[in-house]
Simulated scan of single mutants.
Amino acid sequence: MLIGPIVNSGAIILGGLLGGYLGVKMPERLRTSLPQTFGLCSMALGVVLLVKMHSMPVVILSVILGAAIGELFYLERYIARLGNMARGIASRFAPDTGMDQSVFTEKFVAIIVLFCASGTGIIGAMTEGMTHDPNILIVKAIMDLFTAAIFATVLGYAVALIFIPQWIVQFIIASAAVFILPLTSAEMMGDFTAAGGFIMLAAGFRISGIKSIAVGNLLPALILVMPISHYWSLFIH
């Protein structure tokens, strides 16, 4: 039984419900500053992950190709629909925050990416799938508890529903880890982590309101980076 994805999902539900309840009781200036602060933290973490890069050409190529694929298939548009659906479901059971729909979508897409595509979550799921050790995902759950609560103060109870795509992603990765991990190398993992750092950096810019980058369209880079890293090391470097 996979414990980590369940614990992580539970933390998001709890944080989303807690933040949604406290949101209307918090001063407006606090509801504005907390997500901006977290956006800065996301950018800082992205920079730290970039340091683990093994081959810059590999990561840059993966991000560019990934962005092109995401744009061609309108990936962010589909993620935005999930966010709007989550808002609609949540509004049936609890008062909505009244946030403008475009602003809500802008923020919600970025945090879906942060929760579901972070390097910590993916590596933690792979580790549990291979070793049955859920500790990495449990640590992520603790961080996600507070992250979900912070964003739910602004976006409302819809944040709690992010547990659904995150659980699906982590369950699939953990189940497939037996086949994935033996094929990876330290160099491939370094490049993968750096690609995740790019995405976290872009998400941080978007959450902080500095620059609206289509972070959802960058997600294919996480699929491309390991194969590109492998063949780059094999034939070029």
Score class of each variant (00 low, 15 high):
residue 119 G to E: 03
residue 128 E to T: 11
residue 154 V to R: 10
residue 140 K to H: 11
residue 140 K to I: 13
residue 113 V to C: 10
residue 142 I to S: 13
residue 113 V to K: 06
residue 125 A to V: 03
residue 114 L to K: 05
residue 151 F to P: 01
residue 130 M to W: 03
residue 106 E to S: 09
residue 147 T to V: 15
residue 135 N to C: 08
residue 108 F to G: 00
residue 134 P to T: 04
residue 111 I to K: 04
residue 148 A to K: 05
residue 116 C to Y: 06
residue 106 E to D: 04
residue 152 A to P: 02
residue 157 Y to I: 08
residue 131 T to C: 02
residue 122 I to E: 06
residue 148 A to G: 11
residue 150 I to Y: 11
residue 139 V to P: 06
residue 142 I to K: 03
residue 113 V to W: 11
residue 116 C to W: 02
residue 122 I to W: 01
residue 131 T to R: 10
residue 128 E to M: 11
residue 151 F to G: 04
residue 134 P to R: 01
residue 126 M to N: 09
residue 141 A to N: 14
residue 150 I to L: 12
residue 130 M to T: 14
residue 147 T to N: 07
residue 158 A to L: 01
residue 149 A to H: 02
residue 136 I to Q: 13
residue 141 A to C: 14
residue 156 G to K: 08
residue 148 A to Y: 04
residue 107 K to D: 02
residue 119 G to W: 00
residue 160 A to Y: 01
residue 153 T to N: 03
residue 125 A to R: 06
residue 129 G to I: 11
residue 152 A to K: 06
residue 137 L to E: 12
residue 133 D to I: 04
residue 131 T to D: 03
residue 140 K to D: 12
residue 157 Y to A: 09
residue 113 V to N: 04
residue 119 G to H: 01
residue 147 T to I: 12
residue 132 H to G: 05
residue 114 L to C: 13
residue 144 D to T: 14
residue 150 I to R: 02
residue 140 K to Q: 13
residue 118 S to I: 09
residue 150 I to G: 02
residue 140 K to L: 12
residue 117 A to K: 07
residue 118 S to N: 15
residue 155 L to S: 06
residue 126 M to R: 06
residue 138 I to W: 06
residue 129 G to Y: 08
residue 157 Y to V: 12
residue 112 I to R: 05
residue 113 V to Y: 10
residue 161 L to V: 02
residue 138 I to Q: 12
residue 132 H to C: 10
residue 148 A to W: 03
residue 144 D to S: 14
residue 122 I to V: 13
residue 112 I to T: 10
residue 133 D to S: 09
residue 108 F to S: 01
residue 144 D to M: 08
residue 133 D to G: 02
residue 127 T to W: 03
residue 142 I to D: 06
residue 120 T to K: 07
residue 155 L to Q: 07
residue 110 A to N: 01
residue 150 I to M: 11
residue 115 F to V: 12
residue 145 L to F: 15
residue 128 E to N: 12
residue 127 T to D: 08
residue 154 V to I: 08
residue 155 L to D: 05
residue 151 F to H: 05
residue 129 G to E: 03
residue 142 I to R: 04
residue 147 T to M: 12
residue 151 F to C: 09
residue 142 I to L: 15
residue 120 T to V: 13
residue 105 T to H: 00
residue 119 G to T: 15
residue 154 V to S: 14
residue 158 A to K: 00
residue 149 A to S: 13
residue 145 L to D: 09
residue 143 M to Q: 11
residue 144 D to R: 13
residue 144 D to I: 12
